[in-house]
């Protein structure tokens, strides 16, 4: 759960400097996001895909789990 360290640290820093930080975090977030996605793409590109069947199966599973989640959320969750 290393992810908690930068998050809690960031919240702490943000809270302490809330009156001094006047600029939007939008731009630094966009830059970091694009770099993260680039590196994720690199990781994905390194996976050897020999069988198209594996790819199709993965795509079907991914699509169905996303659609299933969306369907239940839309039908079952009321705000």
């Amino acid at each position: 759960m290393n992810i908690f360290i930068p998050l809690i640290l960031g919240i702490f820093v943000g809270y302490l400097l809330r009156d001094r930080i006047k600029f939007s975090m939008d731009r630094p977030m966009s830059v970091a996001l694009l770099l993260l996605i680039f590196f994720m793409g690199v990781e994905a590109g390194r996976v050897e895909i020999d069988a198209p069947k594996l790819l199709i199966s993965s795509l079907v599973f991914a699509s169905f789990t996303i659609l299933g989640s969306l369907l239940i959320a839309l039908l079952g969750v009321r705000e």
Binding site: L7, V13, M29
Partner: peptide, 21 residues
């Protein structure tokens, strides 16, 4: 770098949460 970028992003998001009222 992937992990570092992830931590940087989470840190920025943390700042954004922390500074929001």
């Amino acid at each position: 770098l992937y992990e570092l970028m992830l931590y940087l992003l989470i840190f920025i998001i943390g700042i954004d949460i922390g500074k929001s009222r």
